[in-house]
Each structure stands twice: as C-alpha cells, then as structure tokens.
Design a protein around this nucleic acid. Structure first.
Lengths: 226, 226
DNA sequence: CTTCCACCAGCAGGATGCGCATGGTGTGCT
DNA sequence: AGCACACCATGCGCATCCTGCTGGTGGAAG
C-alpha cells in the first residue's frame, strides 16, 4: 500500500512511518498541509494519514475538503490530539474515513490502516452492465442472458456495450458510427443494420422478450421492459 | 441507507435505532448474533452495526468472520464496551471497518456510520495489475509501461496477466501451458520461449530495468526489483 | 570444453472477423 | 392497391492478423 503521512511532529512522524514500513507499506512523509495537499493531489496514494492540526494554513480538515472537491476520494485516517466528540465528528464530516486520537497504540493504527486498505479504491469503474437478465462483464468480455453464456465478436461487443451504457435511451446511427466504428462520415452501407441483426440473433433469439428495439427513423434502443 | 443493528442491550438498541432512523436511515434490529448473521447473510444491507459481545454463541467477531468467508463484504462498525487496544485490534483484524467504544456520543456514531456509507459497495474485483511501472488494465485490455501504451496480442496478454498475477513468484512452463494455452500435455516445441521473447521485446526493450526474468530449468518470473 | 538450455528472427498456415451486396419484409403514405 | 422507404437477414470474399514451428545463435552450467 502506498501511504501518505502528513504530520508535523517529527518524532511521531518517524515513529509512524517506520512502523508502517515495517508492516510492508510504502510511506511518503509530508511535514505540512501545503506539501501534503500537493502530494496527495498529484500522486496516487491508497491512503492518507493526516494530522488534524497542521502548521501553515492548510490543516487536515481543509486538506481533505479540498481533495474531495477535486474529486479525489482517497481514504483518509485522521490522527489528532483533539479528542472531543465535536472535533471527531468534524473530521469525519469533512470527508475523513476514520479518526484516531493521540496518544494511540501503534497496533491500533495499523489495524485501522489495514481496515481502510481493505476497502477498494473509489474511482473503480463499473465492471458489469446489466439490462433485465442480460449481463455484460467488461472484465472477462463476457455476455450472458438468463445465466446462459453468449459468444460475441469484438465489434458486436462494442456495439452492445454502447447500447447498454445508454439503456432506455435511443442511440442514433450517427452516434453508433462515431462511437463504435470511429467513422466520422456515412459509409453509405448497412454495416449497422448487419451488426444489430447479428446481435439480435445472439441475444434475443430463443427468448420471449426482445431487448433490442428499433426506433424508426431514429436508431436503436436497448431496454428491459416498457 | 439500510442498516442492520445487532445489539442485545434493549436500551442501547432502541436509542441507536431511533437516532439512525431520525437521520433518515432504514434500520433492522437483531437481538442476538444468530439472528443477526442470518439477516446479514440473507438480506442486502449497506452497513452492519454490531455489538462486539453478543449472547448465544455467535458474537460480533464470529459474525463478521463468517460473513467474510462467505464473500460478503458489507461494511461493519463495531460497538463495544471492550475498550482495550487488543480488543479493538481484534475487531478490526476480523474484518471490521470501524470500532467505537461504549459509552459513545451519538453524534460520533452517526458521523462514523455516514463515513462508512460514503464508501462504495465492495464486490469489485481488481481491474488493474501493477508491477513496478508496468500496468495491465483488465478492463480496457491495455498495457502501459512508464505511462507509455504498449500494443499486445491476446495470447501475450494472457501470458502477461498470468505472470503479473504471480509477480515475484516463479511460474513454471507447465503452469503456463496449463493456464495460458490450456494444454494439458507437452507440445514438444518452444511456444513459450517464443511468446516470452515477444513479450520482452515489447515490455523490456528500451527500458533499463528488465521485468521478465528467466529462472533456469524452472520457468519465468516477473518482478520489479531485487 | 562440452553440453544443454534458452533466445530470437523469419515464415507460413490458418482462423476469423468484418463489411458489402443482395434480396426479403414490413410500414406508412398516396 | 401500389409505391417508396426503412429496416432485416444471409452468404461471400477479402484482408488482416495471430500463432506456432523451425533452425541457427548465444550464453550459462558443469
């Protein structure tokens, strides 16, 4: 795990850093909020361990708030001598994920760090799309309907993915040419029709409710019901 | 948020339940570990709030451990009168995500509950593998080294994926034949050598530190340093 | 030094994916 | 009814691309 430690107290900093490293983590150490914010924003850490109070304008809470407004959702563990309930609540409300009061036992810090590390990164993109009983798994490049595996070609996959990402919406032919074929002109052929047809063979044939719907003079739409 | 509260103390139970509901959450309440486990396993909750000590065989830690071995990764917040560091560490190690000691301020419980609720559902599998500056993205089927995109063939992709999933370990030729080629016999050719060679061309050529290492009479290993 | 193992360049067979064309079907308008 | 238009389906050929093998070379181990 790549951990950023932001702590101005040199002694505590050394202590925590050493312990985390011995537990097998990679630790970067910033001494103040400004540097910490910069590093957290520019490098990809798995976890931030922040002192709640920091010298130099940017304290822990400000740091988290700033990161969160930038769309950075790295887990944050606060470390602080401010033990009051209000302080703890403030830290968590600001977007912190945990709050540990100094003095603390290193064993507990480590346990909490690893608890946070167990949770996945938040920017994880969706890995499977679903429309009714049709599932498309982006990871294994696999399509199933009603639990039955369906073999599918790469181009068909792209087409289906695009349709499913806009499930319930009409997708125009032009959009498909742009996004699935990377054509920026009209090929004057019926490529789309052909591939939609092939998709239908594979997805809808043998099932009572078709999922792919034609929208005359507009395009296609994938939808479960309605 | 759908929250399952497992708490045997009726008073505390009522208090917490009421507070969470007033904050807009849906709360189910189980009075013992057995019921709690059953409910947690059969319904889909967003969060479990567990008393650490529970009557009737199944205590909080057991409950979490059981859930985790079942592949259930619902976030867990422990609530306990056991304040010792060892106890807290034990709870977190068992798979808990947070640990709050009784007596507690409701404001803090709420803040921690909502902090846990901010984190996403967890069944997401790893979507990218990394070894040093080499990254393999399972979703886009993309390989980059040092930020530079590298074109790669399907078979090479499978080979590389398998190596990276066992980074730092020797992967034998037999294993590769089984897992990458689905051969359950020795093809008596040097297919593997050839593909490893091709991978090397693409991954290691032009970089000073090679990542793919030969282990004579054993197999191959991918590793960043050492 | 010898032997074995691993590496790499080139080659050719083969699979397969892809798009086009053709003919068919349905719908709506005149 | 007749026509025009939009959409559907199948077969075919092209082309690309992948993959595995061969055979000669380099280097490590004994």
């Amino acid at each position: 795990m790549r951990i950023l430690l932001v702590e101005d107290d040199a002694e505590v900093g050394r202590f925590v850093r050493k312990g985390l490293q011995e537990a097998g983590h990679t630790v970067e150490h910033a001494q103040n909020g400004r540097d910490g914010l910069f590093m957290a924003a520019s490098e990809g850490f798995d976890l931030l361990v922040l002192d709640r109070m920091l010298p130099g304008g940017v304290d822990g809470v400000r740091l988290v708030e700033t990161l969160r407004t930038q769309g950075n959702h790295t887990p944050v563990l606060f470390l602080s001598a401010l033990a009051g309930v209000d302080e703890r609540v403030k830290g968590l409300k600001a977007g912190g994920d945990d709050y540990l009061v100094k003095p603390f036992a290193f064993a507990e810090l480590l346990a909490r760090v690893e608890a946070l590390g167990r949770r996945p990164a938040v920017d994880a993109p969706a890995t499977r799309l679903r429309v009714a009983d049709l599932e498309l798994d982006l990871l294994s490049r696999t399509v199933t309907r009603g639990g039955k595996k369906i073999d599918i070609q790469p181009r068909e996959f792209r087409l289906l993915e695009h349709l499913m990402r806009h499930a319930g919406q009409v997708v125009t032919r032009t959009m498909l040419l742009e996004k699935v074929w990377d054509y920026h002109f009209d090929p004057q052929t019926n490529v789309i029709d052909v591939h939609v047809s092939r998709l239908r063979q594979k997805l809808d044939k043998g099932f009572d409710k078709p999922l792919i719907h034609t929208v005359r003079n507009a395009g296609y739409m994938i939808r479960g019901e309605g």
